[in-house]
Design a protein around this nucleic acid. Structure first.
Lengths: 184, 184
DNA sequence: TGATTTTTGTACCGATCGGTACAAAGTTGT
DNA sequence: ACAACTTTGTACCGATCGGTACAAAAATCA
């Protein structure tokens, strides 16, 4: 009696490491310790349902730990600062890849287009909201929010490509201080 | 008698669209119009050699159109400006994905680790060189160069995820003006 | 033209793919 | 203990994977 939520982390890691196409049931079975029988019992929809479930959980995590604080935390600078803490820990200081980003670049984007779009749209919207609340005008807030989210995604790519996780940490620090001056 | 160079563009497009794992020989055969016989005649090493060849060509293109101008163009501001033009056209104003970025995020990074690392390392180094020549101190040049390359990669991800190619164009414009003030 | 070599299409290989069937094993309620 | 139900492992399915063998077909050279 294994619950879906118990194996979602392992499942997410497989998709992150191998992408949607590369995450074979054999790999998934090995990573979760569950046979095909159990997997298809938990996820009758197969791989697609597994990935959808993982995305749902990721979205929920970001909603709780990023989006909501960004929208509601007072002063808004606190929400922004917390965002950087959460991002740093979630992406393991640059050693962990963003599954949603991976899916966005691949063909599987078509399968999960809505989830992928929503993830980034909500992130940008929440961050822009915090910026607006801190005094920026609406247009500048959205532009800066897009820039910051893109910078985070790009830093993941670059840190991974150069095998320099520290680059990711540095990028976060730079963004943090830039936003402190922008928002303060 | 089809030459390797003739089919490399189609080949690159398949890898870009489907990733390394997702680019099956059936897809490759269809995209290039060549049967397996011809493919394995041109690339005895199979998929791995095809991808390596594509990466080599990409690297050569960037060397000619980006890295060298960045290092040698005078004044350096010209090289930087040309870089943005080249980047905009190469990535089809945000509608085309960066294959090297895709590989960097996937497992296939291990297979092409050196090529992936070299691509980004040379880009950052060339851009940092141009910045240094334009008067920035060495440390700031490298930091800014990493930031810019990351921003470009992130903008690709974000533009694709949100299905808003214009976001990529806007990001380039922002970077361009920021660097004009930094380098000028 | 005929001999030689390069290029191509097709049939095939074992392995693995995602997914299904189903019975054994485990759990639960009584 | 027994029946009802849930969870799991294993065998198997057709399809497709990357790759090989090889002969027909082109092209080249004499």
């Amino acid at each position: 009696m294994t619950a879906r939520s118990e194996i979602l982390p392992a499942l997410a890691e497989v998709f992150r490491e191998h992408g949607y196409a590369g995450a074979s049931l054999a790999l998934i079975s090995q990573a979760t310790g569950l046979g095909k029988g159990s997997l298809y019992h938990l996820f009758p929809g197969g791989k697609a349902e597994m990935a959808a479930c993982v995305l749902e959980e990721i979205d929920a995590w970001f909603e709780t730990n990023l989006y909501r604080p960004l929208r509601e935390r007072d002063p808004p600078e606190r929400g922004i600062s917390d965002m950087f803490d959460s991002v740093a820990s979630y992406f393991r200081s640059g050693q962990r890849v963003c599954l949603v980003g991976v899916l966005a670049l691949g063909t599987s984007r078509d399968l999960f287009a809505e989830a992928v779009r929503g993830y980034f749209a909500r992130w940008v919207a929440a961050l822009a909201d915090a910026l607006r609340r801190s005094g920026q005008d609406a247009a500048a807030s959205t532009a800066l929010a897009e820039e910051v989210v893109a910078q985070i995604q790009g830093a993941i790519v670059l840190a991974r490509a150069l095998d320099q996780p520290a680059l990711f940490t540095r990028a976060l620090a730079t963004l943090r201080s830039r936003m402190a001056t922008a928002a303060g």
